[in-house]
């Protein structure tokens, strides 16, 4: 794996608290001294945030898709009737 990917893997472990105790001390020291590393960590955190938002968006789509199927298909008629009787429609 090339060097930049090794660093990404290392930052990933750091962000998710999966590093070894000795790695933590080293990383903390490097973060104190290396402004560029601090920036890359922050950008990777931002990238993770984007992935999380993307995952959430996909989950919402999946929930809506299931909901639509449950309310549209003949197979789920008794479920639909149950809900209809609650709201009287």
């Amino acid at each position: 794996m090339r060097t930049s990917l090794i660093e990404i893997e290392r930052i990933d472990r750091w962000l998710f608290n999966k590093h070894l105790p000795e790695e933590r001390l080293l990383m903390e020291a490097e973060l104190q001294l290396d402004e560029q590393l601090r920036l890359r960590v922050s950008q990777q955190k931002a990238a993770q945030h984007l992935v999380w938002q993307y995952g959430r968006k996909k989950l919402k789509q999946e929930i809506k898709m299931v909901e639509k199927r449950l309310f549209d298909s003949v197979q789920h008629r008794s479920f639909q009737n149950q809900i209809k009787s609650i709201f009287n429609f």
């Binding site: 990917l5 990404i8 990933d12 950008q43 990777q44 955190k45 931002a46 990238a47 945030h49």
Partner: peptide, 25 residues
Amino acid sequence: TVQKYKCLEKVRDEVNQKSLSYEDF
């Protein structure tokens, strides 16, 4: 695993190109 980190690098590069950091979010 390698592909996962390549993809993460790609997203991070996008954040970098826009001169953003986590604080901007």
